[in-house]
Amino acid sequence: MHAKRKVIHPRLSGAAVLLVFGNVVLSMSAGAATGNIHEIKLPLEGAALRPSELPGYTIALQKCAICHSSDYINLQPPHMSLTQWTAEMVKMQHAYGAPIDESEIKLLAAYFAATYGDATSIKDADAATPVATATIAADGGSMKIDVQANSCRRKRQRERGFHAALPRTRG
């Protein structure tokens, strides 16, 4: 005997559900279906990261997508600085357990700041002292973490990627 199964699809009204009884699909109103397996089908994932030649782009494709869709990144406010993006990556690693190491944090932050954020902050960071202090802020934590600033090698990589990545219009 097969279990009764109630499959709730997008686009059907709240009162419209499907019941699968064995191989037979029946329709029936909601509320009368207690005792049946409730199942949902979610819409497809369509968002994509903004392409870039920066090495952080490839890391983002591989690592960020493990736990969340890229619209988590796409919808963030524009003009966030390298320091802010770095703090966000540190939060992803420390607080949410993202499998990214120190060098990946720097590359990811550079990609996000250059592609989604305030690219001038990258130049400012290069001109500043080599150590920047980032603060975990977005969820109200008060932990302070020192973040090593970027090396000269990465600066060259970033500058190569700038022209392709920068002139973006807002969504």
Binding site: I8, P43, D71
Partner: peptide, 15 residues
């Protein structure tokens, strides 16, 4: 976007 049992709502994130 319409999700199960929902009229079209503002999609903030997908997954």
């Amino acid at each position: 976007i319409a999700y199960p049992q929902k009229r079209p709502l503002l999609r903030i994130t997908t997954r």
